[in-house]
Design a protein around this nucleic acid. Structure first.
Lengths: 242, 242
DNA sequence: AACGCGCAGATTGCTCAACAATTACTGGAA
DNA sequence: TTCCAGTAATTGTTGAGCAATCTGCGCGTT
């Protein structure tokens, strides 16, 4: 079957001589396409809590609801599975991922390695610094307003900004996935004040440390931050599971 | 459309009470399924050089060649696109990714952050240490045999082992993707001796530093290693592109 | 009552054929 | 040559359909 390889139209397209799509962003073209739209819809239903961890997603029901064909929905499933939000069991169907202790530990391991390194090695005056500032300020504001779920999203934006200090599309994409998966775990715990409240002040601390150019100190502060957060989440998880 | 959400069979399956598939490994069940097989076949054709960067993959031709339907092939495309090996342009088709300077810089940025941190924070006597040892020995052996492409794969295995020191499935998966993409760039350059030769000895150096528990020194050595490798690759790339 | 067995019923895996939408190609006309 | 149709080819998406597999239920046996 080797000899068949010449069958594909082997024109090395001159359209993207060295350019080609960034290969690290959306991976899809400008008018999104139904499969991508469906994936986005499912993503938003996940963060809205309409789909809960462990729930099965029936192809027939969902394709009917989204008004797309089963084949198209399957493509969306494939994408979301690779993002870590759904699992696919052969001949059984796709399910919303249920976060485990192991996956939470894994996620925090990833976060410590990437976030701390990004912060420690960050260049001063990086554009993402502004994102950090506004996110931490927003978290502060929403905490005083009692909007704990808003605090959660602001927190996530803050950490996403930290990762983007590293200037890597691939790390940004990984973190987006990891972050979405962690949100699933939080939704399972259902105590946003306890999960997000204590870290608002730590955000501003890290924020100002970076602004002052003390990135090394900011890095260790963030490490402590994440270790504490991990302990909290795991404690809540085991308490909740019992 | 909110009220429709109850239409899906909302049984929280008791089959994976807290377990569920690891969610970080293959994402698919035991008998792989045609789409996954097709994705694997395409992957191997990529590393075999049968598919070159920039080449278009026609749905009709490939589905015919692989003896699967277009829809199934599309699922495979979706997967490979998320792995960073293919790009998808709306209404134009899928193409093998052509590595750019920017993507190479990005990949090395990821590698420095993850590999160095994994090595620096590595625990002693980690099982992956054995993988490092055998991989670096294999690279040494293959270099003396003049098998430079073999040296390349041994090198990749060595670095994959370093990443697995961090004990994170997600980092392992990310590194697998990044590594495959980098292989694409190497295939474009087509000078394995120049690209892999100089690093065989550095592998053993890092290897022994880790074995002696001097992880900090190993980490900085790896950092220099990667910086040098990046310079080499970028130089070859610009030379080749001109 | 508990356990195993087997048979529908439902769901997934995959294929095929078809059509709309878009892009690529080809052949003139200016 | 350049521009601009018109045509061909490819992708996007659908819907039906069938085989393979899983699920659940009833039934008989112990």
């Amino acid at each position: 079957m080797r000899f068949l390889s010449s069958r594909y139209t082997c024109r090395v397209t001159a359209e993207h001589p060295t350019g080609s799509p960034p290969a690290g962003t959306t991976h899809t073209a400008y008018p999104p396409g139904l499969a991508d739209q469906a994936a986005e819809t499912i993503r938003q239903r996940l963060i809205a809590g309409e789909l809960v961890p462990g729930q099965q997603l029936s192809e027939a029901a969902l394709s009917d609801d989204l008004a797309i064909s089963r084949n198209t929905l399957r493509e969306a499933f494939r994408a979301l599975t690779y993002e870590g939000l759904l699992t696919h069991q052969h001949h059984r169907g796709v399910f919303v991922v249920v976060p485990t202790i192991a996956s939470i530990i894994d996620i925090y391991r990833v976060r410590r390695i990437i976030e701390c390194q990004a912060l420690t090695q960050a260049l001063p005056k990086h554009p993402a610094g502004e994102r950090m500032r506004t996110a931490s300020a927003e978290a502060l504001r929403l905490r005083d307003a009692g909007d704990w779920v808003g605090v959660g999203t602001a927190n996530m934006e803050f950490h996403s900004a930290i990762v983007s200090l590293a200037d890597s599309q691939r790390l940004d994409a990984l973190y987006a996935n990891v972050s979405a998966e962690l949100r699933l775990a939080f939704s399972l715990l259902d105590d946003p004040e306890f999960l997000h409240g204590p870290y608002v002040d730590l955000n501003t601390t890290i924020d100002t440390l970076y602004a002052e150019g003390r990135t090394a100190e900011a890095g260790v502060a963030l490490n402590d931050y994440l270790l504490q957060s991990e302990r909290t989440v795991l404690a809540a998880y085991t308490r909740h599971g019992a």
